[in-house]
């Protein structure tokens, strides 16, 4: 059954891709640009509304400021994100929803122990503000802003905050595929191929138990943030295959060899569950 679905899906993709080459009007998923259609609709992968004739991808500027400016471990801070256009640096004040929110913020600590996915609040001046973030310890924190300016393409922009003090020792992750008990579900994990290879597509398969009450979280069946242990690579993605059943598949191409931590978020019965797994990625031999 699974094999038949795969063949059918591949054929549909092939015909779909081929057909699009000869058409002028193309509807593109702003978040998954390889998902294109000749008709309006929503992305079958991430649920975002397809956009007609998406403009050329251009990177916007995201300024991050904190209050107070000087950070201290354990001290609550306020974050403000101000977006400017890349041409004249004008403030951007109009945004489209991305998975039910105008702004998604991810924060990851240098030791990969701290993870946050939350949503700064839109302000009358067009900026986004997040109050009472407490960074637990000294060291580097990477911040990822995910937003979609009107008339542009979705943006995924990284920033860095540094909390003074002695930073944690460098992280050396090792393989951890063990099942995780989250708030109201257990999450099992495997990859195909079993050994992930840099530069090649890896399927990440999750099975959630129990699956009754499994529901979409922010418009998608799941959310994933993958981070290399050196925090150079940060990847935010959504399921490639999911239908509300217990099995959820993400596809990911790990860019470089090394160890990665992936955080996944699934919602069941109104409760958001977060689990993480550690994946060693090898060089192609």
């Amino acid at each position: 059954m699974r094999r038949r679905s795969f063949v059918s899906s591949s054929l549909t993709t092939l015909i779909f891709a081929r057909k699009l080459w000869s058409q002028d009007q193309v509807w593109v998923c702003p978040m998954d640009p390889d998902v294109r259609s000749s008709v309006a609709g929503v992305c079958p992968r991430c649920g975002m509304k397809l956009a007609a004739n998406l403009p050329e991808a251009t990177e916007y500027h995201m300024d991050l400021s904190t209050l107070p400016r000087a950070l201290e471990p354990g001290q609550p801070i306020q974050l403000t994100f101000a977006i400017h256009d890349p041409w004249k640096g004008r403030p951007v004040t109009n945004f489209q929803l991305v998975h039910e929110k105008l702004f998604h913020m991810f924060v990851v600590s240098q030791d990969l122990e701290f993870f946050l996915h939350n949503h700064p609040v839109f302000q009358p001046d067009g900026s986004f503000r997040y109050d009472n973030l407490t960074l637990p310890k000294a060291g580097m924190y990477r911040v990822l802003g995910d937003f979609y300016p009107d008339g542009a393409t979705p943006q995924l922009i990284a920033k860095t905050m540094i909390v003074p003090g002695t930073p944690p020792a460098p992280v050396h992750l090792s393989r951890d595929y063990s099942p995780k008990d989250a708030t109201n579900m257990q999450v099992e994990f495997r990859t195909d191929p079993p050994q992930a290879i840099a530069g090649l597509k890896t399927q990440l398969h999750f099975t959630i138990k129990p699956a009754d009450g499994f529901e979409k979280y922010l418009g998608a069946w799941g959310h994933m943030l993958a981070a290399s242990e050196d925090l150079i690579d940060l990847i935010h993605t959504h399921p490639f295959i999911a239908d509300g059943g217990p099995n959820v598949q993400f596809n990911l191409t790990f860019p470089r060899p090394g160890n990665y931590r992936v955080w996944v978020q699934f919602q069941r019965a109104g409760v958001v569950n977060t689990a993480h797994f550690d994946i060693p990625v090898q060089e192609l031999q």
Partner: peptide, 10 residues
Amino acid sequence: TPEEMERIVS
């Protein structure tokens, strides 16, 4: 950008 890298991979 991450989006440009993703396009090349795809």
